[in-house]
Simulated scan of single mutants.
Amino acid sequence: MIPPARRITAVCVLGAALAACGSADGARHDRTEATVSISPPAPRPPVLAPGPGGLTPVFEHGPRTLGRTVALTFDADMTTAEGPRAAAGEHFDNPDLIGTLRALKVPATVFMTGRWADEYPTEARSLGHDPQFEVANHSYGHNAFTDDCDGLPSVPAAEMRSDVARAYASLRKAGVPRPMPYFRFPGGCYDRQALRALNEVGVTAVQWDVVSGDTSAKDADAVTRQVLDEVQPGSVVVMHCVLSTAPTTTQVVRTVVPELRRRGYRLVKVSELIGQSNGHR
């Protein structure tokens, strides 16, 4: 049995995280204090108010009169049928593009399908944890939300909400901690039925006003001219983060970004444009 004089008493105080130990001869051991900090919750991203009849709101561009801002957006497309092609080595990602955006310090919004996040979870997680980017929802498997949309297979109306939920689940599973409450319709196709189907999801549907034309493009200069000719203050530019179907996008970004900055544009994420749009269009 240990004599009382040799007993050591450990005292732990929650919150101050202070540990103190005393010995029989009265000698004091060093005290270690650990400060417990609680981070405040992240502010909720800005969204638009629901449209007439509670329909999902649609955002196409920011204010034209509040300064030269422009948002570059990138669709990370992949369908459920493209898994074998990815397994065979086809790239539906584009690491060089993401590296270029990082090197140029370009804030950007990536609209990601759930299937893309399933295929490239490390890249999805990296984007989701990088404050330079924000990751938003682009459906699970890039099926259309209308019956006639550039030949895309369609999602039945009864499954539209669950498709969006499935995509969010894939983003979180891949490690995207805070996917944005923004949704981009595959192909940009939507109708009242689609807007009604998503009215309880709480998303803002994000379209665009500048089509880059980078899908299947082989002439980077032509894509660059198209973007620079159409961009306006508040523009949302749609491009793609899919090397196999948009091979010129990295080269386009390397030319477009310096030129936009030379013209006095500030590059922002979609969330900033939506935040600027309170009562302004």
Rank of each mutant, 00 (worst) to 15 (best):
I2K: 15
P4L: 12
A5W: 07
R7L: 13
T9A: 14
V11H: 14
V13R: 12
G15I: 05
A19E: 07
S23P: 01
D25N: 12
G26F: 04
A27E: 02
R31G: 07
R31Q: 05
A34E: 11
T35G: 07
I38W: 08
P41E: 07
A42W: 09
P43W: 07
G53L: 05
L55P: 02
E60H: 11
E60D: 05
H61Q: 03
G62Q: 07
P63F: 01
R68F: 02
V70I: 12
V70T: 03
A71N: 00
L72W: 05
D75S: 08
D75E: 05
A76K: 10
M78W: 10
T80S: 15
A81W: 14
A81T: 09
P84Y: 14
R85T: 11
A87E: 09
A88C: 06
E90T: 15
D93N: 08
D96E: 14
L101I: 15
K105A: 15
V106G: 01
A108P: 06
V110Q: 05
R115G: 00
R115K: 14
W116M: 02
E119T: 15
Y120I: 09
T122S: 04
T122A: 14
R125N: 00
A144H: 04
C149A: 11
D150N: 12
A157M: 07
A158E: 11
A165H: 09
R166C: 00
A167R: 01
Y168L: 12
A169E: 08
A169L: 05
R172W: 08
K173Y: 10
A174L: 06
G175K: 06
R178H: 13
P181W: 14
G187N: 10
R192L: 10
V201K: 01
T204F: 02
A205D: 00
V206C: 08
Q207N: 11
W208Q: 02
V210I: 12
D214T: 08
T215A: 14
A220P: 03
A222V: 02
V223P: 04
V223Q: 08
T224S: 13
E230F: 10
V238N: 10
V242M: 09
L243Y: 13
T245S: 13
A246F: 15
T249Y: 06
Q251H: 10
T255C: 01
R262Y: 06
R263A: 11
Y265R: 03
R266K: 12
L267P: 03
E272A: 04
S277K: 00
N278Y: 15
R281D: 03
